[in-house]
Simulated scan of single mutants.
Amino acid sequence: MAKVVMYVSGFCPYCAMAEKLLKSRGVEEIDKIRVDLHPEQRTEMIKKTGRRTVPQIYIGETHVGGYDDLAQLDQQGGITRLLST
């Protein structure tokens, strides 16, 4: 199964919804990077993704985007495809 990395902040309802969706698709482990506790990580996230909001989700090497992007990908069956690579 592909590695899942998610940039998050402490209280973020969209981060919680993204985690719940990923776990419902069989993801057991999510590498969470807390940008609220480590400002340098927010800078890294912005450089990598071009976005300032959390969550920012990677499945394997693919930047999925935020929660809305993840939910749309799920509707198209894309999460399962990415996880199997």
Score class of each variant (00 low, 15 high):
C15N: 01
C15R: 00
C15Y: 04
C15G: 05
C15F: 04
A16T: 15
M17C: 01
M17H: 08
M17P: 00
M17F: 13
M17T: 01
A18M: 02
A18T: 01
A18Y: 04
A18H: 03
E19P: 04
E19L: 08
E19Q: 15
K20G: 08
K20I: 02
K20W: 11
K20D: 11
L21D: 07
L21A: 09
L21P: 09
L22D: 02
K23P: 00
K23M: 01
K23L: 00
K23C: 00
S24E: 13
S24L: 09
R25C: 10
R25D: 02
R25N: 08
R25W: 08
G26D: 03
G26K: 03
G26H: 03
G26V: 08
G26M: 03
G26S: 01
G26Y: 03
V27C: 05
V27I: 10
V27A: 04
E28H: 12
E28I: 09
E28V: 11
E29T: 14
E29R: 14
I30F: 15
D31T: 13
D31C: 12
D31G: 08
D31P: 07
D31H: 15
K32L: 05
I33Q: 03
I33W: 07
I33H: 04
R34P: 10
R34N: 13
V35F: 10
V35T: 12
V35P: 03
D36V: 11
D36G: 09
D36Y: 14
H38W: 15
H38Q: 15
P39G: 10
P39Q: 11
P39D: 12
E40G: 15
E40S: 15
Q41F: 14
Q41R: 14
R42N: 02
R42E: 08
R42C: 03
T43F: 11
E44R: 11
E44W: 08
E44K: 13
E44D: 14
I46H: 06
I46C: 06
I46W: 08
I46S: 04
K47F: 15
K47L: 14
K47T: 15
K48M: 15
K48N: 11
K48V: 08
K48Q: 15
K48P: 11
T49G: 05
T49Y: 09
T49P: 07
G50T: 11
G50P: 11
R51E: 10
R52P: 01
R52I: 06
R52W: 09
R52C: 00
T53Q: 05
T53D: 03
T53A: 02
V54C: 02
V54E: 01
P55V: 06
P55Y: 08
Q56F: 06
Q56R: 01
Q56G: 00
I57L: 08
I57R: 03
Y58S: 06
Y58C: 05
I59C: 01
I59N: 00
I59S: 00
G60I: 02
G60T: 01
G60N: 05
G60H: 04
G60A: 06
G60P: 06
E61H: 13
E61C: 06
E61Y: 12
E61I: 11
E61T: 15
T62D: 02
T62A: 01
H63E: 12
G65D: 10
G65N: 05
G66N: 10
G66F: 13
G66Q: 05
G66V: 09
G66I: 06
G66W: 07
Y67L: 14
